[in-house]
Design a protein around this nucleic acid. Structure first.
Lengths: 244, 244
DNA sequence: TCAATTTCTTGACACATCGTCAAAAACATC
DNA sequence: GATGTTTTTGACGATGTGTCAAGAAATTGA
């Protein structure tokens, strides 16, 4: 029999509530905003109970990260299975990445925190493997599209440049751009009031530079992206306040 | 008279020693690796004395950041004054950025930490202004070169794309790439064993995509960069273990 | 030179937070 | 409802930050 006793169910539910509340606290105050004492109090349990769920504070943060990365991987997967030529599928990935970061800025914030602080030492090998798995899946999805583009002759990489190298470029650009936007108002001070279109342009230029067909000058990618949104991410897009 | 009493000199010297030691501690253990107690003990003073120099722990970290960013700005400045066509001067900036991150990985680490944690609330307005000033100076140097390129007709930006937007692209790419390299071994797992050449390629492709002349296919940028190193950064390059 | 004044240093104190653990409470099973 | 198991609790020890009054050291002025 696989019925769940009410007590077990309560524990499972509580774990969700812990993560939900923890995310809010991290969002509002970073690593130090997450205090296990207030977390426990607010949940109506004692601190010891929290430690029944997670070995340490860092494990909670990593659990948040796993949730976050899983969410993005799912969006990437949906984008990648879009039935179109590789460069448009890549644009679909771009839509997914942008929608993700705009819909869930708090999720992105968690990634920022984990990256810089020395969190990893205290965490369990299992959860670290989960994180790494998600990361490699995301990269793998994109790499697959690049390989398709090469296989179909839409792009020819020069000697000594691998598909992965191009993926690294896409990853760097988005990672860097989102990070700059999230952690500094320098972008606005630069006079860039709509950074997301700027990011799209820069990525298109890089792909153009690799000669990936069709070039952004030959095709209306803006229209293509609108269609992607309609076809794949209508629900997510509807939740966006600032339209596009 | 502007002679400095021995006591004042001692205090000035101590401030340097504080920062030097603090950087080591941050490097080895992140934000939490910097303990004011061990810092004071190791320096042979009491904790109270540290607080005479810096209002709080966060101020120390920001002071490290100012040192770091000033160092990079100086290298940028040297690169920007290289007497060449704009695209080569941009390559010189690239050399500076890469040399910086490879020569001082610990400096870069500090930037990572500051970015994610909620450090800023506790710090003084003055030091925050110092940081922001350095940042805008770096950006301004690059923007100047881009404007030169446009003015000299080497590149024509499409309607609705500003010079700053391109600068944002360059910044994003390098920021993201260095961050990925520093915080994850995913790059190696992607099969990219020499990430720095890959970054250079991706940046060149983006500039090619903007049609910035001369294109990377028309000119031997590798040779140009070697010359830049010789002419501008010979001393720094000599200190690099892994050649290039 | 020495006393007055200013500046600097110290370390104990108050406070906050993390993680542990033995005892108590709640739960499950027969 | 008696017994064994699981879960919860909250006091405790350890560590770390920031403050401050008192003492030490340096500077100033006559």
């Amino acid at each position: 029999m696989s019925t769940i006793s009410p007590k077990k169910q309560e524990i499972i539910d509580r774990e969700s509530r812990i993560l939900e509340l923890a995310r809010q606290m991290v969002l509002s105050g970073g690593y130090h905003g997450l205090g296990l004492d207030s977390l426990a109090t607010e949940l109506g349990v004692s601190r010891g109970t929290i430690y029944n769920h997670f070995k340490c504070k860092e494990e909670i943060i990593l659990a948040l990260l796993v949730e976050t990365m899983g969410k993005r991987r799912d969006m990437f997967q949906r984008a990648a299975s879009y039935r179109e030529i590789p460069r448009v599928r890549l644009a679909a990935i771009g839509v997914a990445a942008e929608l993700f970061v705009r819909l869930y800025p708090d999720h992105f914030r968690v990634e920022q925190i984990v990256k810089s602080d020395s969190i990893w030492d205290k965490t369990t090998e299992e959860r670290r493997a989960l994180v790494k798995g998600c990361q490699m899946q995301c990269v793998g999805i994109v790499a697959g599209i690049v390989r398709d583009g090469v296989a179909q002759g839409h792009v020819t990489l020069p000697e000594g440049t691998s598909c992965e190298s191009l993926v690294f470029g896409l990853w760097s650009m988005t990672e860097g751009a989102y990070s700059i936007i999230a952690t500094s108002d320098a972008v606005a001070e630069l006079g860039i009031h709509e950074p997301f279109p700027a990011i799209r342009t820069n990525i298109h230029r890089m792909l153009d530079g690799f000669g990936w067909l069709p070039l952004s000058s030959e095709m209306d990618f803006a229209a293509a992206m609108e269609k992607i949104v309609e076809d794949v991410f209508a629900k997510e897009f509807a939740r966006l306040k600032q339209p596009w």
